[in-house]
Write a protein that binds this DNA or RNA. Structure first.
Lengths: 197, 197
DNA sequence: ATCACTTTTTATCATTTGTTAATGGATTAC
DNA sequence: GTAATCCATTAACAAATGATAAAAAGTGAT
């Protein structure tokens, strides 16, 4: 019963990206695993082997890189219902190009990337699901690119809040400020400024 | 003879992305067209129907959006040998999400996106080619994201020059400055500063 | 070559953001 | 409960960037 209910909620997860028939979902069901990640754990490490696709069932995660000065730069945030960047865009020669970290405790759905790809080839709905994930990834990167190019830091913070507001009270601020392209001191100033009205 | 030679150079174009066998290339050959675009022409317009994949044979192009203030924001530059963003990431319901403009006279290789997709499904090499294009797209966006988050405008200009240097003398500077996330006046200052040493 | 037009550069001043360091608040370990 | 630690906030100053406008340079047509 518990398992059944869990499958229902996982089906909902995919449906939010692209509605799937019972047949397609049952094919996916045969190849995924549930994984629990503790808060702060870096569950995908740069340059390390990785051959999975991931969906976030509950919790928040981020992707990040370390720049030449040794600072961690957050590239994207992920929340419940999001797919992580597709394996093909996230790895080169099966090694990860980025780090991914749990920002809260996280429940992940994990697929073997090759098995998922095979399902994409044989099943139109799953192919469309995969392509929708890819599209979402590029759209969110394009939106961020556009925001960085044409909005002020204050506007970008307001945009971040509308999508991930709750995170601001859960995680260290340098994680957010590096995403916004500003220092944590500037973030603190903007927070104060917005609060004053 | 001319046609033959042209095919050779087009094969070279794909080989730079991912080497193809003669068999795979001949399959591609049956579905592509060569297209000439005049300098400044916007050959893909936002919100308009588009169902093609593109490769740049010669010349330079850019993608751009118009922000709420009416300013054109350049998102990416493309040069000879580049594929444009894949159709799947560039369109929604077959309508373009971005504008694409020729910055010089441009020779394009154009594929019908559905026909290209069918070849990807039936042919492993072409599938790998398509995936390599996708990967390159994400990598270049990630690199730009990282540069905007952690480099100064001067460092970003130096990076732009190493990849597209010649463009700086061919196109209007606001096209470049919006890509770098600064005003054209700031770009002029940086140019002067770098020139002085 | 000249004129009209466009683009880049320069100048001035205002604003934003960065840097560094000190302060204050919260959390955790003991 | 207190000390130690971590993190956000604040302050003071420096540097970078923006906005506006004027000057200079470049481009194209005639």
């Amino acid at each position: 019963m518990t398992a059944r209910k869990e499958n229902e909620s996982i089906k909902e997860l995919f449906n939010k990206i692209l509605p799937l028939s019972e047949v397609s979902f049952s094919k996916l069901k045969t190849i995924f695993n549930s994984v629990s990640i503790k808060k702060d754990e870096v569950f995908i490490k740069i340059d390390q082997k990785n051959n999975s696709e991931y969906f976030i069932e509950t919790g928040f995660a981020r992707s990040f890189l370390v720049n030449p000065e040794g600072e961690e730069i957050t590239l994207s945030f992920y929340k419940s219902g999001n797919a992580l960047s597709p394996h093909i865009t996230r790895t080169k020669l099966n090694k990860s190009l980025l780090n991914f970290q749990a920002l809260t405790s996280v429940e992940l759905i994990e697929f073997d990337a090759d098995q998922f790809l095979n399902l994409m080839i044989e099943n139109l709905e799953i192919r469309n699901l995969g392509n929708a994930i890819l599209l979402n990834e590029l759209i969110s990167k394009t939106e961020k690119e556009m925001a960085l190019a044409s909005l002020t830091a204050k506007e970008r913070l307001i945009g971040f809040r509308s999508e991930f507001g709750i995170l601001e009270n859960l995680i260290a601020h340098p994680i957010i400020s590096s995403y916004l392209g500003i220092t944590n001191v500037s973030l603190s100033r903007l927070r104060n400024e917005i609060a004053k009205g």
